[in-house]
Design a protein around this nucleic acid. Structure first.
Length: 297
DNA sequence: AGTTCCTCCTGGTTGC
DNA sequence: TGCAACCAGGAGGAAC
């Protein structure tokens, strides 16, 4: 499932094929991938055709490609649950679940196709307008303007997040997944950050000390940086980079997807903690029963 | 106004 | 064996 590290891997892969590249005619194989694009297929195609593209940008899980000759516009690319952007030679056969195809001529003259593949169609592309984010001065699409800074952003401020947590009545895992409080974290890295900081997903955020708030946010940043360094987390063919290759971080996960296995930390320290899986807000949560005990209510 | 729930989707897995 | 129900979850918007 694409979260911040996986989206960043895609952004880096796209860079040589968008920055200074020219777009061709967009081919829409499934209009549901343009559900969020105002004006639909026609508007997006008109905005892209023949246009000079800029360097792809990212905040949290949102990725966008600025349209260089119109400093006000960008194409937002969201991978949703199962989205991929592949850079392929046009002669290669269409992969399954291909939804969108955009021919490009890169700045160095190479020709390629950007192929949006999305099995579950939770992701999509849409045309958006760029506005200035008052907090950072950055240009950002209107549909991402409400998204908080992510833990890998230069100006990310854990104290500000902790302050908001202190004033909220919500629980920690929900707060980690709320993209308007801190962005980029999904179910996998939330469980990993909670495990690393020994905190229970249902802990009330208002009861967290500043040190605990820092611990879980630092853990999120660390685990996402480590995942990024090895190409992200792939469980199956649902997440791959622009060349179609999987990331290697799944083998480094300590809690997510490890139901019934010994907790690695407990095992190292001679205890017998086991990873359990529990439903929480309609999602599965994985934690060590021993070192992430349920808080007293 | 803050918080929770539902919906959008497909394909692999589970259960009868 | 076959088919239905269930599960995975990012994010927006409805509902409370």
């Amino acid at each position: 499932m694409p979260e911040l590290p996986e989206v960043e891997v895609v952004r880096r892969g796209l860079l040589p094929f968008t920055a200074g590249a020219h777009a061709g005619r967009l081919d829409v194989l499934d209009p549901r991938s343009l559900r969020r694009s105002p004006g639909g297929e026609e508007s997006l195609r008109a905005a892209l055709d023949g246009r000079l593209l800029g360097a792809p940008m990212r905040r949290g899980k949102f990725l966008w490609i600025p349209l260089a000759e119109a400093g006000e516009a960008a194409v937002v690319v969201h991978l949703g649950m199962s989205g991929q952007v592949r850079v392929d030679d046009a002669t290669r056969p269409d992969p399954p679940h291909l939804r969108l195809r955009l021919p490009v001529i890169a700045a160095d003259g190479r020709e390629a196709e950007l192929r949006f593949v999305d099995q579950r169609i939770f992701g999509g592309w849409w045309l958006d307008r760029l506005v200035t984010d008052p907090a950072t001065g950055e240009r950002i699409p209107t549909t991402a303007a409400h998204i908080a800074l992510d833990p890998l952003h230069r100006q990310f401020d854990p104290d500000a997040v902790h302050d908001r947590w202190r004033r909220s009545r919500t629980r920690l895992k929900r707060a980690l997944l709320d993209q308007s409080l801190v962005s980029g974290i999904g179910n996998i890295y939330a469980d990993e950050a909670l495990w690393a900081s020994r905190l229970h997903p249902e802990r009330r955020t208002a009861t967290l000390s500043r040190a605990q708030g820092h611990a879980v946010l630092t853990a999120a940043a660390t685990v996402m940086e480590r995942a990024l360094a090895v190409g992200g987390t792939s469980f199956d063919a649902l997440y791959v980079n622009v060349d179609g290759r999987s990331g290697y971080f799944a083998r480094s996960l300590n809690a997510y997807g490890r139901t019934g296995e010994p907790c690695p930390r407990c095992r190292d320290e001679g205890r017998d903690g086991v990873i359990v899986r529990e439903a929480f807000m309609g999602r599965s949560s994985h934690r060590c029963r021993r070192c992430q005990p349920r808080p007293r209510t």
